[in-house]
Design a protein around this nucleic acid. Structure first.
Lengths: 208, 208
DNA sequence: TTAACTCCATCAAGTGTTTAATTGAACCGA
DNA sequence: TCGGTTCAATTAAACACTTGATGGAGTTAA
């Protein structure tokens, strides 16, 4: 209907915008109604488009879902931006994930849906598996370097610690466990055992 | 058609058997194809019944699902049978959950599906919430008594520790995190920090 | 004109649910 | 014992609606 003005400014900008809008709409649908509730019609309507138009951009529902997968994974990558010392990076990463999951529960919800679906979807399993493996490697590096700097007990098995960190964080994508209170507690205990809890004053406000 | 012989022995035994069979078939469906893939027709066919017969026992699909919920929850309760000292009980519980999740991944898969769905289903959220609360209380009691017996560092915040235990165990219902290897590692590290790894010697935990 | 883009109308395959009918065992009065 | 009645259990056959996908025609900008 309304092809918008700047169609040829940036290469393919219009097409990319539309695809991005559709992916986000699908993302929101999944977060809201779950995978079982994803309806292409509503996705299209959410962007103000006809279903046929959606199929013009994404030939099949699966293609759209793959777009959602890429989008969701991207949201997580941002929590691993390197800043400060290894210990700081580790601390910041944990907090960033927690903040992301608290401020935008949809991200967690969708990740949960994807994780479950990966049990029945080989290609998705591969994607998730690689992402988690990369995550594990990154954590491992941070832990080792933090230990070298004297922040962590040296006798720890960092592979195991990394696995426990990942388990704790991923559990937050399941809404049942994650009664806000229990989430905070689990997280606090993890930081405590890691020796990352704010070492400054006694009552650090739960700000970030 | 075939009301079976012993129809009046135990009260409603036939009816209960049928309902149980349908619930289990639905449970398997969910474990296999996910919530999105649950089809009443296939459930009925799995038991060798007509769809209408399913609806004779369960007026709606939701009613059938509620049956699955009860069944799945029941599978978990069995991991909390009290045996031995508090420390033993704690150790046994952790191991029992891990064993259950490893030997029968379907249980974990369905629990994951239920947990996610609870975000969009108030009544399910209530059921899950209560179950998790009860779990938390039980763990708390075990931790406190284990500490009194000298198995755990006394300065721990047991609420926090319980929350971390629950987070770790529930994360195992998500197949992505739970690459068998990482699951074992996370679990081992948790036991180590808890001081439960070695049954005999009580090692003072390096807590904070 | 052309090519990208959009929509209307429509389809085929499901999907939960219901209706009306059938079956066979148990019960009943004669 | 027998015909009739009841009733739980079961079924075939829809019903009503949803859902992913398409074909073709219309619209717009270059």
């Amino acid at each position: 209907m309304r092809p918008v003005v700047a169609a040829t400014h940036r290469a393919g900008s219009h097409k990319q915008d539309r695809e991005q809008a559709l992916v986000q709409a699908a993302f929101n649908q999944i977060a809201e109604r779950g995978f079982e509730g994803l309806r292409t019609r509503e996705v299209a309507a959410g962007v103000g488009l006809n279903i046929a138009t959606l199929h013009y951009y994404f030939p099949t529902k699966e293609a759209l879902i793959r777009g959602v997968v890429a989008y969701a994974m991207d949201r997580f990558r941002s929590t691993l931006e390197p800043h400060g010392s290894p210990a700081d990076q580790l601390r910041n990463h944990l907090r960033a994930v927690r903040k992301l999951l608290r401020d935008e529960p949809e991200v967690g919800a969708v990740m949960g849906e994807l994780a479950l679906r990966s049990a029945r979807d080989a290609s998705l399993a591969r994607i998730m598996g690689e992402a988690f493996q990369a995550w594990h490697r990154t954590l491992l590096g941070l832990l080792k370097r933090a230990a070298k700097d004297g922040y962590l007990a040296r006798e720890l098995d960092y592979d195991d610690v990394a696995a426990l960190i990942m388990a704790t964080l991923t559990s937050m994508t399941l809404p049942s466990t994650a009664s806000a209170d229990r989430t905070d507690r689990a997280f606090r205990q993890l930081e405590r055992w890691l020796g990352l809890a704010a070492p400054k004053r006694h009552r650090s406000v739960s700000s970030n």
